[in-house]
C-alpha cells in the first residue's frame, strides 16, 4: 500500500543532503569567525577554507537547480 522503501530513501537522502549543506555552511561561518581572530598565523588559511566551504554550498545550490529543471535530464 505504501512504498516504505521509497519513503526511507527520501528520508535518508534528505538527511544527507541537508546535513551536508548545513555542515559546509556552518564550517564556513565558523572559519570566517576564526579568520577575524587576532592570531595572525591561522587567519589566512581559515579565510581560504571558509571560501572553499561557501563554494561547495554554492555548488549544491546549482545542483539543486539542475535537479529542478527537467530539461537537463
Amino acid at each position: 500500500m505504501i512504498d516504505w522503501l521509497a519513503f526511507l530513501t527520501v528520508l535518508i537522502v534528505t538527511l544527507i543532503g541537508a546535513g551536508f549543506v548545513v555542515l559546509m555552511y556552518s564550517l564556513g561561518v565558523r572559519l570566517t569567525a576564526v579568520s577575524a581572530d587576532p592570531d595572525v598565523s591561522v587567519t589566512r588559511a581559515a579565510k581560504w577554507a571558509a571560501y572553499a566551504c561557501f563554494i561547495i554550498c554554492a555548488a549544491s545550490v546549482l545542483f539543486g537547480i539542475w535537479l529542478l529543471i527537467p530539461h537537463f535530464h
Binding site: D3, F7, T9, V10, V13, T14, G17, A18, G64
Partner: peptide
C-alpha cells in the same frame, strides 16, 4: 538565522528528494 538556514535547507532537500525519488 542559523535556525532559519537549517530549516530552509531541510525543506529544499526534502522537496527535491521527494520529487525525484517517487514519494
Amino acid at each position: 538565522p542559523a535556525q532559519g538556514f537549517a530549516a530552509e535547507t531541510s525543506t529544499a532537500a526534502a522537496i527535491l528528494a521527494s520529487s525525484h525519488l517517487g514519494f
